[in-house]
Design a protein around this nucleic acid. Structure first.
Lengths: 209, 209
DNA sequence: TCTTTTCCTGACCGTATGGTCAGATTGAAG
DNA sequence: CTTCAATCTGACCATACGGTCAGGAAAAGA
């Protein structure tokens, strides 16, 4: 085997421990916020001594930055569904599907992102001003094109994007509230219904039928 | 004058300092999160010595609890617009107006609430399970009644409520992101457009026309 | 095998934070 | 004026946290 299951190859040690730490960090940052999170908690969750964390990530800020950057990557790739779609029904429908799936599979990441933005984006302000800004402008233009082609109602593209973000991420960021009102975690069927409800209301709301 | 402008009446001293501290606390908690906020920061913002804070609020947790409870009150009263409305156009329209206004006027409160829920509602879990649960059930029934009367499409009432919360609160919680994309704070006209966009998309989305 | 580089970690340090307290100050009551 | 209770605050304390470091273990290279 050239790729053994429990190896101690140098390359893999680094890779393995870094992802281990990043996963633990994402969870702790999501649950406690940046200020409430402690390196000791992250270390315990990762099953490593605290000093080992500082070997891979010099400071708490650096570790946090990596966590946020990872989330941002996932976020952006979710938008591939929007592009190359013939119209809003397929494009926005698929985008909602993708974002709802992220809310379900990566709720911690969503919370860290929300927390970061709520606190004024001290770490990823530059991303907002460059990458996200360009991204938004591009998709707004795409939506405007669909409007001009008579494929949907003349809604404001930016506010439509905000609504898409808000509605889908709500199921992650406010998942605890939803679970409390629901009397427990959403089942597969309930997630499906949530997704369908969101898609139905938004697609009808933008006149794409 | 029985109510002088700068009095030092015992009653008013307490009242005045408590609200002063609560306002400062709301801002600091919103900007830094519970873990990142410090009593010293709150004291400085309130213009009082730190020890004075502990005279009015024994612990950081107690102060935080009061802040969250205050927000919750405002939240609930915003729903009066829903009740006693003849139908969804007036009721939900007014509710969106009210919640958008709160997002504009009390963004800090909204952020503290979001943060509290995201971290698993350690402080207001009982409120979620009692007050909010009853509240939600009542409004869901109201929406269902409108559906049964043919005044709107047969959407899922709970998911409609989630969409209303998510969309309106997004303008407070993610206000920094929106401002960055917008190139500055929203003007009066832009807030009006935001409100109208949200109302138009949601009302059309639920088939209330 | 010997050397070098990477990885690992217990013990430690300086600082910041939440909270305390004794005593001063100030308004109310008689 | 005197008394009493409420209000205020500088100084202080114990703790917890982020971060450091010297030195040991282990893999890679020669």
């Amino acid at each position: 085997m050239s790729e053994p299951a429990r190896p101690q190859r140098r390359n893999e040690i680094r890779q393995q421990n870094e992802t281990l730490i990043l996963q633990a960090a994402e969870k702790v940052f999501a649950e406690a916020g940046f200020g409430g999170a402690t390196m000791q908690l992250i270390a315990d969750l990762a099953g490593l001594p605290k000093a080992n964390l500082h070997y891979y990530f010099a400071t708490k800020e650096e570790l946090y930055r990596k966590v946020v950057q990872n989330i941002f990557e996932i976020w952006l790739h979710a938008a591939d569904s929007l592009d190359n779609a013939p119209g809003p029904i397929e494009g926005i429908g698929a985008y909602i599907d993708a974002k709802m799936e992220i809310s379900r599979r990566h709720p911690d990441g969503s919370k860290v992102w929300a927390s970061e933005v709520m606190h004024g984006a001290p770490v990823i302000q530059d991303y907002l001003e460059t990458t996200l800004r360009d991204w938004t402008a591009g998709r707004a233009a795409l939506i405007q094109r669909w409007i001009d082609e008579g494929k949907m109602a003349a809604v404001n593209p930016e506010h439509l994007l905000y609504m898409l973000w808000a509605t889908t991420q709500h199921y992650a960021d406010f998942g605890h509230q939803i679970e409390t009102l629901n009397g427990g975690p959403l089942t597969d069927a309930q997630w499906l219904r949530a997704k369908d409800s969101v898609k139905a209301m938004i697609l009808r709301g933008i006149g794409a039928v």
